[in-house]
């Protein structure tokens, strides 16, 4: 198991009252899982995704990542966990507008203070992997939406994270581009054994999950695990 949440609670103060954005949520994610989190707007999907690695601080509950508790560690240590082990993909791509494609991809490596030559080598290889080796010196505004999201995906995996947290990664894309990106995420998941946790509105995207969590009013109301059959079993 790579990630586990126990009685995760996130409360907000609103108009003098308390709102439970996450209401004692518990989940378990195995290494290599492709987790999809679905639910209506305001159900707590994004809050769950962002709170796991401390972008939103929990009110209470326990988060265990890679065998270590991370809900009660300092901001500095949580930042370090994000830097080394987590890749983020957001709906709006979140690229730095004045940096070229390859410079954007090199950011996580720069934060880890990896030597410049190594940064360039790894970023170029990843851009080749996502099919953007001919767009390395382009600025984000010179790329299509699908290309921008592929840059964001490249940036999320360049530092070889253990898990990718994707918040509506296809939300800004048309259906054909969405499928392209989802297929690509699946490829990353299978090829690199990187765990993916993806929040989505789309039922089509949700079908990509091997573990499907459905949230409503801050609670997991449905959880289903897709059984993966090995080729040997299928042949039998």
């Amino acid at each position: 198991m790579i990630l586990q949440g126990e009685n995760v609670l996130k409360q907000y103060h609103h108009n003098g009252g308390l709102i439970n954005a996450l209401n004692n949520v518990s989940f378990k994610v195995n290494k290599g899982d492709f987790v999809t989190v679905t639910g209506p707007s305001g159900s707590g999907k994004s809050t769950l995704l962002l709170s796991i690695f401390g972008l939103i601080r929990l009110t209470s509950g326990t988060i265990i990542f890679d065998g270590k508790r991370i809900d009660n560690i300092s901001d500095r240590k949580l930042t370090d966990v994000r830097k080394k082990s987590v890749g983020y993909i957001l709906q709006s791509f979140a690229l730095v507008p004045y940096l070229t494609t390859i410079q954007n991809v090199m950011i996580p490596l720069a934060l880890e203070k990896i030597p410049k030559k190594e940064q360039y080598k790894r970023a170029a290889a990843i851009l080749d992997y996502v099919g953007l080796s001919d767009r390395m010196e382009h600025l984000p505004r010179e790329l299509s939406a699908g290309q921008q999201q592929r840059v964001a995906i490249a940036r999320s995996i360049v530092h070889r994270p253990q898990i990718i947290m994707a918040d509506e990664p296809t939300g800004n894309l048309d259906p054909s581009l969405s499928l392209e990106i989802l297929d690509f995420l699946k490829k990353i998941n299978r090829d690199n054994k990187i765990t993916i946790m993806m929040v989505t509105h789309s039922p089509v995207a949700a079908e990509y999950g091997t573990l499907k969590l459905h949230l409503n009013e801050g609670k997991i109301v449905e959880s289903s695990k897709v059984k993966l059959y090995s080729p040997e079993l299928l042949n039998n």
């Binding site: 930042t79 830097k83 983020y88 979140a94 950011i107 996580p108 934060l111």
Partner: peptide, 16 residues
Amino acid sequence: KREIGILRMMGAERGT
């Protein structure tokens, strides 16, 4: 602001 948020999300410390 957004760029700061992105960097912090990717693991940039306050010192950065």
